[in-house]
């Protein structure tokens, strides 16, 4: 009864050709004479090629890939310039390009958010039903990530939108928060906020991104993007309300 020396894990590793994880030669030899071991191996045998082939049914190759956000311009020029020029000149160029690339990075986060929001549907949010205290606790935790404090009441002043949840995301290592809403017609809308050093532009600027209505404004060291649905007038109303409330 040699088979008691081989665990099921070893037999499976043997079957899968993971030779360094099982005493392959010993198992093969024992299986020739030990019927009980042979039966155990048979019980663990499955057609793994068939399993692999069966997943072709999912037709994963036909699934459309989301459009990748455009890459933000980086600052390799700063490296080259820094090596080629005298330190003072390099510093000046560095500051200039640094300011430029900082603007590009700011633009970059908006593209990411838009691409992410384009995948939201009603069912992404419809099931979320949190009590007021839970909403506030979540909001406290999330807004703290960017050094803000937002009362759940200030997000619920408009009858057209229901506040659903808050999440901390990250862009290039910087915290980015997303406050998610559903409109009365069931469209998902998100308010995203990131710390920024751009100049204040408290009047929301409307645009369309990824086929969604969007509004953007900046205030007191934060950059805001409200995005979702196709009702530009609604997005404008919500954005104006939120900007005025200095969320």
């Amino acid at each position: 009864m040699q088979d008691r020396y081989f665990t099921d894990e070893e037999l499976v590793a043997y079957l899968d050709g993971e030779d360094d994880l099982a005493p392959v030669a010993d198992i093969a030899q024992a299986a020739e004479t030990d019927a009980a071991l042979g039966a155990r191996i048979a019980a663990l045998t499955v057609d793994t090629a068939r399993i692999a082939a069966s997943f072709d049914l999912l037709k994963a190759d036909e699934r459309p890939m989301p459009k990748l956000p455009e890459p933000a311009l980086r600052a390799p020029k700063f490296q080259i310039a820094g090596m080629a020029l005298a330190a003072s000149v390099a510093l000046a160029i560095g500051i200039g390009i640094g300011a430029y690339s900082s603007g590009q990075r700011t633009q970059g986060w908006v593209d990411y958010v838009a691409a992410y929001q384009a995948l939201y549907s009603n069912s992404t949010l419809a099931h979320i039903d949190q009590a007021e205290t839970a909403k506030q606790a979540e909001l406290d935790r999330v807004t703290a990530a960017i050094g803000k404090s937002v009362g759940v009441g200030t997000l619920q002043t408009l009858p057209e939108v229901e506040y659903k949840r808050a999440q901390v995301l990250s862009f290039n290592g910087r915290a980015l928060i997303q406050l998610a809403f559903l409109t009365s017609t069931g469209e998902p809308v998100a308010l995203c906020i990131i710390r920024s050093n751009v100049a204040d532009t408290p009047d929301p600027a409307l645009s369309e991104m990824e086929g969604l209505s969007a509004a953007r404004w900046a205030r007191d060291g934060y950059d805001y993007l409200l995005i979702g649905g196709n009702d530009a007038a609604l997005i404008d109303r919500i954005a104006t309300e939120f900007s005025t409330a200095q969320i």
């Binding site: 099921d8 894990e9 037999l11 048979a42 019980a43 663990l44 499955v46």
Partner: peptide
């Protein structure tokens, strides 16, 4: 070891079912 034990359990279930 956890990978191995998961596969052993899964193989036993699938083997019997198939």
């Amino acid at each position: 070891g956890t990978v191995m034990s998961r596969l052993a359990t899964a193989r036993a279930t699938l083997g019997q079912k198939f």
